[in-house]
Nucleic acid binder design. Sequence first.
RNA 1: GCGCCCGUAGCUCAGUGGAUAGAGCAUCUGACUUCGGAUCAGAGGGUCGGGGGUUCGAGUCCCUCCGGGCGCACCA
Length: 735
Amino acid sequence: MYNDIRSELASDIITAISAIGLNAPENIELKPLSGQFAGKWGYACSVSFQLAKQAATNPAQLAERIVAALPTRREVARVEAMNGYINVYLNTSWFANQVIAAVDNEGDYYGNGPTRNERIMVEFSQPNTHKAFHVGHLRNACLGSSVVNILRASGFEVIGANYIGDMGAHVIKSLWCYLRFHKDEEPPHQRGIWLNRVYVEGNARTEYKNEVLALSQRLVRDHAGAKAAAFDYLQEASAHHPDASYLISSLPSKDRPDYGAFADHDLLLGAWARLGEWLPTSDVDTEDRAEYARLDAHMDWWPQVDGWKAEQAALWRQWEARDPDLIALWQRTKAWSMEEFYRIYQQLNVQFDQWFFESEVEVEGVTLTEELIKRGIATDERPTGTVFVKIDEQLRKNPELAAKYARQLNAKNPDGSPKEVWRTIVLLRSDGTSLYGSKDIALARVKLADFHADRLVYCVDVRQSLYFEQVFKLIELLGFPNVDRFTHLGYEMVTMKGGAMSSRKGNVLFYEDIAAGAVDKALSIINEKNPELDDIAKRDIAEQVAFGALRFEMLNKDLNKVIVFDWDTALNFEGQSAPYIQYAHARACRVLEKAAQGERFAPTYSTAVAAQGEQPFAPTYSTGETNLTPPPVGEAGRGSDYDFTILTGEETALLELIGRYPDEIAKAAELYRPVNICIYLFDLADAFNNFYHNCPIIKAETPALTQARLALTHAAKQTLRNGLTVLGIAAPESM
RNA sequence: GCGCCCGUAGCUCAGUGGAUAGAGCAUCUGACUUCGGAUCAGAGGGUCGGGGGUUCGAGUCCCUCCGGGCGCACCA
């Protein structure tokens, strides 16, 4: 293929270096010309700098000697030595036809790599039922689904898997709150959102005492006045309350005081009241004042909290015993959330090949944990304590793993004590119920044994990186295969402009609100720009634009960058955004359509493959060499003998970008980086807009030039479409 | 305390050891009786957080300091 030229040029240069009597490096890097060479098509090589000392000369002279020793090639128009660099300019006419032919022949498959013999399971979008889908889930779903698409395009067999959190403390809280306070109240629609409110209330009731304690502590720690007010009371109380000294010492500390450490919880209420008296005279911010008011208004909860917790514990036991009524309620409410999720995934263009549920691996998680106990890896301190694994300790006990991780395990603290690298993971609660870790090792076993995955990718936010390190080590201790091919694809969180999201402060950004805002904005722009469209088309395009913009917004930053969600930026459809790229695509479509009407261009491209209805990067796609290799130029190569002898800078830049697309896919797949495709697509759309603006297509000087430019337009349109598809963004033909 | 991540234009980000550090947003100025103005052209805006080091060459690699975020036992 035309991309092979790069390695051929590299070997030419190596040969030339040897020919002038120098030792050539093993591989030579050729970089696309850029910067001051904008609009030129070729590669630059800086090998002369490395070799100048060896050659006892300066890079500039050496570059000239190497250039003089290079053979000529039909693919190369010119080679020059410049400032020590070797610049190779390609025969643009020849390459233009190569690129056009490749896009033309491969259509929706253009950019895909050859089949690779590896099955990758990518787990992503792990929403919890009974809770709401928020902006953090949005980033995860966009990233995970794009990574799946990119890996598939790059030739891997990929299984995209969802892992629904349908059981756990959040579900128990939600069901408890429903049964206790909201039975038979559910609304006819948006029941998933309603259910989230039930969960939030259940959580607030359960955590009430902790929240009172947390706010008291924060005020005491941050404000001298608060400390004086609270201590005033506590010191008075210390005469008859043995617990008061505990609060006096623990409230100002960094760690959260523990209700288990003092018997009379009501002691805190006295201090709480004093804080309330002090508050109006203080400079405490409005958020904390509102928090105090909110908690204070629910003082009637205080004496009930312990009873509520006991009720929830009873519900846990009912669940463990598979109580039919509870199971029925669980299934009914879970379905409300699932309805919500299905709709969201459809809007966001997210698909899954496999659905896992936490409830399905719960039992096997306990079984595997029992095995760990039996093998002496896990410590069982039930019922007074938990079932846990001290990872470092266990790795040291395993000779093979101790050697493998010797470097980390031998690390020392400044005082000479060994550093605890992987710490402790808790697998079962003291009451025997299972935690996330036990379920995750069970699920990993399913993925490896039942799905025969060669590589596991976990797309989960970066805060869980220690947790996944622990899980991977546990899996290794269990002796599962392929452990070195587990990847935690961690990404940074999404915050709001006012700071980190927290349900306590009520600044959670729900998916529903974001989606509605984006569609409204898109609709109003369409009404303004394209008022003649019918309402259904308007709605359809508005959704394609809005959800495309949201997806792009979530993908356009590197994984390790925090996204601060800002309505103005997210809903800006100009510049670096999905609508900019979609607009370039729609423009290209319009030109091709107009040209076809005028009969000045008979499209030679084939959309037959796409018409079969397969996803272009579906796992069923077979990459027999025949349909990936374009026919040779000038030998019955369909649509491959256009007149590109004279190319403008805009045309060259566009062609070069189109030709680079397969490399971009391969690189993005290797690094799990959808952002690479975002940046590439913006550059491509930018190049197309430049071309469109500066080069008349239908009204070009000659019919031959029109043909060539239409072919280029079509290739650009196809590549834009393929790239958008990989990102899960629609490519509307008009907008 | 230990560990991970971030710091590049007013703001949001690219730049994966190479030539004069690039985009978008925002600000200002302009765009042909010709293919869609969600577009295009131009202007201003930078000691790449500070300091050392490695290298022919450092925004990029190493060390260190500063500033910010996150994580570290019964949440997921």
